[in-house]
Every structure is written in structure tokens, then in C-alpha cells.
Simulated scan of single mutants.
Amino acid sequence: MASTEKSSRKTYHHGDLASELLRAAERELSENGIESFSLRAVAKRAGVSHGAPAHHFRDARGLLTALAASGFRRLVATQEARQDAAERDVRSQQIAVGLGYIDFALENPALFRLMFSSEKPDRTVADLGAASIAAYEKLMSGVRSVVGNNPPDDPGAMKHVMASWAMAHGLADLIVSGRAERPLNFSALSRQERDALLSDLMASQLDVRFAVDFPPPAP
């Protein structure tokens, strides 16, 4: 019986070790920060040998790169969950993308900083590049739906992309860092109140940019 249990544990770690190491890496990053991050600490959390993380990710940078790529995929999934719950008009969908962006940052602050602010991930790695481009395309496709033009081909639409990204990312960063607490009293708000406030802020940016760059035709 003991031999069977030992064999099952070995099979589990062999089959799902990469995913388990990513989960352990995120816990280590969240609790102890990036400066003390090491493969040894991650292996200890995952309950595996010290050499196991290196076998899958080579070194700490490789593991952090894979974790950042995973983060971008989870970011898109969080945004899509918000879109699924939102009204189907393009304005509501674009606001939902921004709310999902902020949701992800609030739920995963250490990972959010790794993805967007850290120099530790190797951004030349194809998997990370593809994951980050997919997240960027989520924003681009929303703006494309709103303005009816392809942003890379239209300077006005591209300004809209940057304004929308700056609004969502700026709010996320200010809230996660605590700097939005004084002006917004954010921690005292209910989830519903928070969503209403953030939606109003993003809607105001969305409406102003749309009116400036894509005014209605003259009667």
C-alpha cells in the first residue's frame, strides 16, 4: 500500500509539476517579494527536490518569465469573464475590459507588478511575447469595435487605445499601491459601489475621447 501511494505521488509530481511550481512561485512572490525570490524557496513550497524547478525552467528568471506569461493569460480570462457578465453593446463591453483589468490587479498585485513593472522576466521569450500580445489585442479589439476603425491604421483610434489603457492601468496601479485611497476612499466601498465608480471614470474617458477623435457628422 505504501509503495502504491509513493508511486502515485511521484506520478502526480511528474505529470503536473510545472503547474505546481508556477503556483508555488506565485505564492513565494506574493509573500516574500521578488528580491528574495529563488528556485530553492519555490521548490520547498512545492515539496519537491531543489533541482526540480531548474529541470523545467532552467533558472529563477525562466520561472518568473513563465509566471508572467501565465499572468497575461489569466488577465485576458478575467476580462472575458467581465465581458460575459456585461451588456452586449460595445461601450459596456469596453468598460468591462477595463474592469477586468482592475479586477486582475487587485486579486494578484505581486503578479501584476511582475508582468508590467519588473525587469526580471525575459521578454524575448516567445511564450511571454505571445501572451502579452494577446492581452494587448484584447484592448485593441475593444477599441476597434467602438470606433469602427483598425487602430494600427488610424492615428485617432490608436490614441483611443492608449487613453483606454492608461485609464485602466493607471487606476489599477493607484488602487493596488494604496494611492487612490484618499481621493476615492476605495476600501470603504462595496463591490457594487466600486464597480459603479470605476465604470463612471472609464466611461467619462471613453466618451470624451470618442467625441474628440470621432465626432458625429455635421447635420
Rank of each mutant, 00 (worst) to 15 (best):
R40C: 01
K10W: 10
G156M: 03
F57C: 11
A24F: 08
L106Q: 15
Q83T: 04
V76H: 04
R144G: 00
S49V: 03
S70G: 12
A77C: 01
K120Y: 05
D16H: 14
S8D: 13
A131Q: 04
V76Q: 05
E31M: 09
A41R: 12
N149T: 15
N32V: 02
L29E: 11
L75D: 15
P155C: 05
M1Y: 00
H169W: 01
R123P: 10
T65V: 03
L39W: 05
F186A: 01
A52H: 00
A69C: 06
G98Y: 02
G148F: 09
M115S: 01
G47I: 11
A43V: 09
V146F: 02
I133M: 10
G142A: 07
V97M: 12
D84Q: 15
P215V: 05
F104P: 03
R61F: 03
Y101W: 09
A172H: 13
T4F: 02
S132H: 00
V143P: 08
M158L: 12
R40L: 02
L189G: 04
N149R: 15
F186M: 08
M158C: 01
A163Q: 13
S117T: 08
F72A: 06
L17G: 15
Y12T: 01
T11R: 11
M162D: 13
N108E: 12
D213L: 15
